[in-house]
Design a protein around this nucleic acid. Structure first.
Lengths: 191, 191, 191, 191
DNA sequence: GATGAATGAGCTTTCATTCAT
DNA sequence: GATGAATGAAAGCTCATTCAT
């Protein structure tokens, strides 16, 4: 009978928070600002989130979930490992560049040990598939026999680095460059 | 407004700040905490720094200077470009892993748009040499004819990625793995 | 502005308020809590009461009315004053212990200068009869010629004190002890 | 070297709080008001007290301690029990009326279950001596063989009742009346 | 210079009250 | 009427900065 709880408000709140983090940095999140930017009353924010930390943590979870979806392609492990790697890499690349502000928040959150640490092991889960496929490649002898962490680092590091640049200077690789970049990275770890 | 007097005090303040950033994140820097951790009175901090921003900016400058020194090897451009790249890459790698907390602060500072932007173009200067040498390689036809930013991204991204892991899980490549990793990356961009 | 409609709702609201005062104290009354405890929507509370003060004031009035009824025995002033005193004292005693939470609220309300003062002279009216009868006793020479306030204090104070204990430690006098207690008090002021 | 922590500030804070409770009631304590009234900055209050609850709890403890001192006369149990009772009763009476605001706060705090309950058994300790002496009187056969709680109630209740009146109407017994009142109460429980 | 107690602007959070359904 | 989501004024609390010693 009362108006129904409007969960779309959560989206607006998240959006405003991301914008704020993008503009002012992680330290610049002020809930009154979030309220102003999102057009939602401060009290309402506290209706959906226990407190500021909760908002930030939930936003992190939300982005993580979304990224997981973006990357969690259904993998047929019978397929060629290089193909699988490419599919995953491209998916992650797109996921990052499709929402750079989210990516920005994501990294800053992980960096900031400030908050109740919800960043636990299974956070890596976002990337678990890539790791798995890399391992497969190694076992099949297609990839160099290097530590999985290093292989992962080589493949993923440049994406993050480029995202950082994209946030600052707006530099972004073209579609061909993306392709080229991937080929470079893959070839570098292939046997 | 740093009285160029007691550098040991400044060191302690910087150190405490880095530790705090490491423990609580960039957003978690509180000057009273810095005072407590450094064993220097809060009032004294204000003798050495105009305000909080000044402290953070000076710390950033300080780290930048140090990194620049670490990396600013005297380059004889007559030498083989691959050799030069390796020297620079290794120097930067060491610089990062020799003081991970400083590296952490460095990235978080750059990420955080919070502060008066002192991060200007010549910040890239830290890496200017690497960029220059990469360009040289391209012009000489030794490296693939890709955008300098992308080449840079491929070479540097994995270092930053690994540093991030090192801060969290303490994973760190061995000396051999480092070598191997470099070889992978370089080969990936070589013609 | 109580719609004189659904008294059962008002009862539930009052009851929840009393429970809250008992559990959290007078300062701890939160209308959202009252709503939750009473099972009545917060909006509905505002249909029955103008605002929080109104609710509290009305509850006070309600309890006062009830207490007045409990104590306002039809007094035949021809009867023996001691008999009358006993009747009133016992009635008040029962009234207090029959609903300790209401008594608790009653005292806290009177103590709390917080609200628009509705506690005016005729509040004493609850006890007016006792005072009147005490006066009568003095005039008849049966009671000591002391200030009426003091006589009143001696007779009523112990009831309140015991109620306080009852609320905390659940100590409560037996029926015989009650009798005994009354006799003590009365004898102490008799000539 | 910095100015010394000025513990007299605590007194000023307490005083302002008591005044506020007296004027606005327990629910009306607002730390900004306490700051204003006491002439102490809000931040300073948080230097001496963890939070609002802490301030209120510590004020309670403080008053309790003071009352304990007021009443904790050195008792020679060889003395006549009636004499001892009188001494204690008078001391408590004075203690209450010497600082009615403190007494007011004291009762309101006890009533308000709102706060972390620090009101434990040994709170009764304030009155332990009176209880002990009453017991002694009973054992010696000087006082009626009634439950200690009831005896206590009879002796103490009227003081509290009168204090309540004193806070409201400014009624206060004269010195003779006080004497008289005590005599009444004592005689009422004597054998 | 050095110190840390004191300050108060400004942020976080609560809760009485309103209002769309 | 009844509901409870939404609101925002006002209260609680923090922390960069100042200032007395």
């Amino acid at each position: 009978m009362a108006r129904e709880k409007d969960y779309s408000k959560i989206d607006k709140i998240f959006e405003a928070t991301l914008r704020l983090v993008y503009e002012k940095g992680f330290a610049g999140i002020k809930l009154t600002e979030v309220a102003r930017l999102s057009g939602i009353a401060i009290g309402t924010i506290y209706l959906y989130f226990k407190d500021k930390d909760d908002l930030i943590n939930q936003l992190y979870q939300y982005i993580k979930r979304k990224k997981k979806q973006d990357v969690n392609i259904d993998l047929d492990l019978n397929r060629h490992s290089e193909e699988l790697i490419k599919e995953l890499w491209m998916a992650y690349y797109e996921s990052v560049f499709n929402d750079l502000k989210a990516a920005d928040f994501f990294y800053q959150y992980q960096q900031s040990n400030a908050l109740v640490k919800l960043i636990n092991e299974n956070d890596a889960f976002v990337f678990a598939n890539l790791r798995r496929v890399l391992s497969k490649g190694v076992m099949e002898g297609r990839l160099k026999n290097m530590d999985e962490d290093i292989l992962y680092t080589i493949m993923i590091g440049p994406i993050h680095e480029m995202a950082k640049q994209a946030l600052k200077n707006n530099f972004k690789a073209t579609s061909e460059e993306k392709e080229e970049m991937f080929n470079c990275l893959l070839s570098s770890i292939k046997n």
